[in-house]
Nucleic acid binder design. Structure first.
Length: 464
RNA sequence: GGCGGGGUAGCAAAAUGGUUAUGCCGCGGAUUGCAAAUCCGUUUACGCCGGUUCGAUUCCGGCCUCCGCCUCCA
């Protein structure tokens, strides 16, 4: 039985799809005006694994992750750069795809872009007008009238009588209620022409929240199973999506809300204003992408996760142990037998709100089993199961050598040819029992971060 | 102020009312020409104070403390 933590109920619940055997899942994706940081990496890795596990569990999954390609920050950046919206967003969409591919992310079934769904957004706004949930403000913007929607606050559990509106932010005089949020932004004189769409309420562009209501509805319908995103989106974004979609359609919007935790730096939220954020491609200069993926999956998706080079290095050493086991004990291909004790533990962990930390622990126990039975059929079976289970998490699918010898962020002076030549020289010295020379060569390589391993007359190498 | 999530061994991170988490690091042993890898063994735990219980890190209450959301944000 699959259980998951539903933010709406604030407890773990058994997962029951609307249509047996099918899962419709929507995740809030990127606003493409800059490179993705490791917080985004966590989000996409987490939901990638969730989608993989749902499929492994036999569901047909329709996974949608949107791209926000129109927004204040995008306009500002494009204007600052003196380029078109289209040129800016397509550049960062390409970069995003590169980064996500490096992380082993399986592309969602649909990646709708906001600018392709403006019509759908207008249709929802019109329905909201029909139901008296939207109004046209003096400044030309269209707002959602929060006080007219009964369920407002049910996701974030905000008791608005307790909130002191305007305490931290000036209340916009165009709003009838401080909680109201924008559905349609009136075009401004100085804005570029490619950010203006015609609408019944004048030229303008959509508000942020309406995008997701429209795109999810287009691909998944008015009522679907799972909606995910970062925990910060719970309020106001997801709360507002509920207000829009349920307000317009009159039916329940989403059954299960999933929110992933943040990546922190020095126990503080990573954010641009604090200047403590890390771009994925920066991190990949220093660490293998699979190390970053592994680092993310070693924690539970809802827990805060502290990032530092020390922690990534720790993760790298741990992943090295797993790959070393697969190098030492060649795995045979196996179909996963979910009744096998360790496989059963893996499954129980994943079924329990996607407890990847426990699932990863199982991987290490399998590695130990494989090592213990190295050279036997049993060992090869254990290694095979290790590789198969890791594959469910999107890990350990490479040739072990390619991971162990990967030249990530190295100086590049020691090419594999040069290393092989040094190994030959060392072998000759050792054959002549010239241990001093053999050890000198090994020390020289070690100083360059290359570790030699002599086994059964063969010498292999890896980078440390 | 409102709402929410934490505090576990040197570091990271899980589960659990009584039984080894797991990984990295450390220490001892086996193995090795010496190493590396591997195996065996092993040292460091559950924020504080009460309560329930035969027994609590695990449940309940209080306290201390850290973090997040309440504003664009994964």
């Amino acid at each position: 039985m699959l259980t998951l933590h539903n933010s709406l109920a604030r407890e773990k619940q058994e997962f029951k799809p609307i249509t047996p055997g099918h899962v419709n899942m929507y995740v809030c994706g990127m606003t493409v005006y800059d490179y993705c940081h490791i917080g985004h990496a966590r989000m996409v890795v987490v939901f990638d694994v969730i989608a993989r596990w749902l499929r492994e569990s036999g569901f047909h999954v329709n996974y949608v992750r949107n791209i926000t390609d129109i927004d204040d920050k995008i306009i500002k950046r494009a204007v600052d750069n003196g380029e078109s919206i289209q040129s800016l967003t397509s550049r960062f969409i390409d970069a995003m795809n590169e980064d996500f591919a490096a992380l082993g992310i399986i592309r969602p079934d649909h990646e709708p872009r906001a600018t392709d769904h403006v019509g759908g957004m207008q249709a929802i706004i019109s329905k909201l007008f029909d139901k008296g949930l939207a109004y046209h403000a003096p400044n030309g913007d269209v707002y959602y009238s929060v006080k007219d929607f009964d369920g407002y606050g049910k996701l974030s559990r905000k008791d608005f009588d307790e909130q002191r509106a305007g305490e931290r932010v000036e209340v916009d005089p165009n709003k009838r209620d401080p909680r109201d949020f924008v559905l349609w932004k009136a075009a401004k004189e100085d804005e570029p022409s490619d950010v203006k769409w015609d609408s019944p309420w004048g030229k303008g562009r959509p508000g942020w929240h309406i995008e997701c209501s429209a795109m999810s509805c287009h691909h998944l319908g008015e009522h679907f199973d799972i909606h995910g995103g970062g925990e910060d989106l719970q309020f106001p974004h997801h709360e507002n999506e509920i207000a829009q979609s349920e307000g317009a359609h009159g039916t329940q919007y989403v059954n299960y809300w999933l929110h992933n935790g943040f990546i922190n730096v020095d126990n503080e939220k990573m954010s641009k204003s604090l200047g403590n954020f890390f771009i994925i491609r920066e991190v990949l200069q220093k660490f293998d992408a699979e190390v970053l993926r592994f680092f993310i999956l070693r924690a539970h998706y809802r827990s805060p996760l502290n990032y530092s080079d020390v922690h990534l290095n720790d993760a790298k050493n741990a992943l090295t142990r797993l790959y070393t086991a697969l190098k030492t004990v060649a795995p045979v291909e196996v179909a996963i037998d979910w009744n096998e004790p360790l496989a059963a533990r893996f499954k129980a962990a994943m079924d329990d709100d996607f407890a990847t930390a426990e699932a990863v622990a199982v991987l290490f126990e399998l590695a130990a089993e494989a090592n213990k039975h190295a050279g036997t059929e049993l060992g090869a079976q254990k290694a095979g199961l290790l590789k198969a289970l890791a594959g469910v998490l999107g890990l350990l699918q490479r040739d072990p050598q390619s991971f162990l010898q990967a030249d990530v962020g190295a100086e590049g002076e020691w090419t594999s040819d040069k290393i092989e030549a040094a190994i030959v020289a060392r072998r000759e010295a050792r054959a002549a029992k010239n241990w001093a020379e053999g050890d000198r060569i090994r020390d020289e390589l070690a100083a360059a971060g290359i570790v030699l391993e002599d086994k059964a007359g063969e010498t292999t190498w890896r980078r440390s």
